[in-house]
Computed example of a mutant assay.
Amino acid sequence: MLMTILIAFLGFVIIASLGFAFTGGGGGSAALTKRTQTIGLGSNTRTKQRQKAQAKTPEERRRQITEQLKEADKRERKARLTLRARMLHAGVSPDITKFWLYSGILGAVAFVIPLLALGHMPFLLRLLIACGAAFAACYGLPRWVLGMMAARRIKKFTEEFPNAMDIITRGIKSGLPVNDGLKLVAKECSAPLGPEFQRLVENVGVGMSLDGALEKMSEHIPAPELRFFTIVIAIQAKTGGNLSEALGNLSAVLRARKMMREKIKALSSEAIASASIIGVLPPGVGIMISVVRPEYIAPMFTDTRGQLMLLGGATWMFMGIMMMRKMINFKF
């Protein structure tokens, strides 16, 4: 009985296999027909989309271009926030491993010091302070230093950049090609302008186009002035024209921007002074009281409630300083 069932099952499998083999061609042709129809529909869809794009009004095309520019600017800002980009902006070799190693050592030292120095405080409070100090020293302090170095370097670059435009303009008017003008800037100007233009000249010398070399230079110096120079060079390369006149106008615009920057700084100096006084006043008064009457302010450091009040006050003070900095930090 068992052998009969097994033979019947094997026979069913063989017959089903033969039937699938003989009828598979029809299924394949049906699939091929369906695939062909899908491709035809896809081509028709693309044709309709192309016709729809051509039928757009100038306002719609302008809106689409604006959205594309916004997306490109957003991607560029996101790329600037990377650690490697910040190190390039600061003029530091982008060694990420070494950076995180030094940051970890600094964070470990900042974690141990409060645990040992604040032995009179409760352990939980010491642990919280140590964790906060370690986080600030490991994550915040190195990035803050990189930001300061990058801002100082970009500021120095933008201050000397109009002079570089004047050198290139005079060289072009005297009959020199653009590359010789770039070499003059690399030779005559100080850091960071000279080394960056020297790198630009070397990239052009190895076969890179001037537009591509300027884009690569923008990775090291993300300044709007350099972006203006790149746009002027790109437009002149495509449309032609008097390059010396265009660079002369660019130099005038950059100097006007610098004057506007100084004017804004002068007009906002009163707000900056007021914010500085408000930020320094509470800790200054606390230090004066601790010098004149130390027994009066001692419970703030020895009692747990006073320590919690100091911690809360420092937190709110930090938030207030950041808010005032946001209010007086004008972008132009």
Rank of each mutant, 00 (worst) to 15 (best):
V232T: 10
L281A: 14
K155A: 12
R257T: 00
W144T: 09
S43H: 09
M319C: 03
C138D: 10
I65T: 14
A21N: 11
D166S: 10
M324P: 03
L127S: 14
V13W: 08
W316H: 02
V232A: 08
N203L: 15
T36W: 09
N249T: 06
Q51F: 07
S274H: 03
F111Q: 04
L146T: 06
E225K: 00
I113C: 02
L69I: 13
G212P: 01
A72N: 11
P192C: 05
E202A: 15
Q51N: 14
R170F: 01
S269Q: 07
A150K: 09
G248C: 00
V253M: 15
S190P: 02
G11S: 11
P94H: 05
E188N: 14
G205L: 00
I5P: 01
G240H: 07
N163L: 11
G11W: 04
F330V: 13
A273E: 00
T82A: 15
G104L: 13
R143G: 02
I105G: 06
M324A: 15
G286M: 13
V145R: 12
G320P: 03
A237L: 11
C189P: 03
G212M: 04
S93V: 13
F229K: 05
C189E: 09
I233Q: 06
R126M: 00
E295L: 08
N203E: 15
L2S: 13
S190K: 12
F123V: 05
H89M: 06
A133E: 07
A134N: 10
C131R: 09
G25F: 05
A150N: 10
G132S: 08
G279N: 11
A79W: 04
A90I: 02
V112E: 06
T239K: 09
P299V: 08
T82P: 11
K331I: 07
R255I: 03
S93N: 11
Q37H: 08
V280I: 14
A137H: 12
E215G: 01
A134W: 05
A223E: 06
S274G: 01
M121T: 08
L141T: 10
L200A: 04
P299E: 04
E160P: 00
P162A: 01
R143A: 01
P222V: 03
G26T: 05
I328A: 05
H120R: 10
L308H: 00
T23W: 07
A134K: 08
G104Q: 10
G207M: 01
T230H: 13
E71C: 03
A137Y: 09
A8V: 06
F111T: 06
R35V: 08
M87K: 06
A136N: 03
P192W: 09
I167T: 06
I105W: 07
E159M: 10
